[in-house]
């Protein structure tokens, strides 16, 4: 499937403002959704989204196809911005009102409603994630989407810290050959 976002990013690198607005309109709903889960507060998530898109505009010329799909590159920019902000604000999830949680959108069997919309890369990743035990998969997905630490996962899942660490370690070990 053609990467429409990559085309828009290439045009952004040439300072094409029309392309940048289109990129924002089409990519921001997914990126905002990611920022909401990491930040838990809409106003903080909007700050992260804003900072991310400014960086995307400024760094568009550094993106190339070797960096993967354009949406995943932008998701990495957004995620790192969110983690930096969380770190600078020294926010802990337990201090916040949890508004966004769970993995309903990913579903336990990783069979989302609109599979045909998924990129080949996501479909490959999904096949790899399916090889994990549900507990391993849950820990890794919760870490990615919500930025939970091992300790937070231990409390959330009501499991010993060592067990959570082992699930994550074994999960990543299983994923490694599949992703490679």
């Amino acid at each position: 499937m053609e990467d429409q976002f990559a085309e828009l990013l290439t045009r952004c690198a040439k300072q094409d403002q029309v392309a940048f607005k289109q990129l924002y309109q089409e990519a921001s709903p997914k990126l905002y959704s990611l920022a909401l889960r990491l930040m838990q507060k809409p106003e903080l998530a909007e700050d992260v989204l804003q900072e991310s898109f400014i960086k995307i505009w400024q760094k568009a010329d550094t993106y190339n196809l070797q960096k993967g799909k354009a949406l995943t590159w932008m998701a990495t920019v957004t995620r790192n911005k969110a983690l930096d902000k969380l770190r600078s604000l020294k926010l802990k999830s337990k201090e916040m009102d949890i508004q966004y949680e769970g993995l309903d959108f990913a579903s336990t069997d990783l069979e989302p409603d609109h599979q045909e919309d998924l990129s080949q890369e996501m479909q490959r990743l999904r096949e790899c994630l399916k090889q994990l035990q549900p507990s391993q998969r849950e820990c890794i997905l919760l870490s990615y989407y919500y930025g939970h630490t091992h300790q937070e996962l231990s409390e959330k899942l009501n499991k010993p810290l060592g067990t959570v660490k082992a699930w994550i370690r074994r999960g990543l070990e299983t994923l490694k050959p599949c992703l490679s």
Partner: peptide
Amino acid sequence: SKFGSLVELLPSERPSDQV
């Protein structure tokens, strides 16, 4: 870039126009 694909599974949420 491999894990970044996970963003595709998320539901779309619309930020305010102010952003």
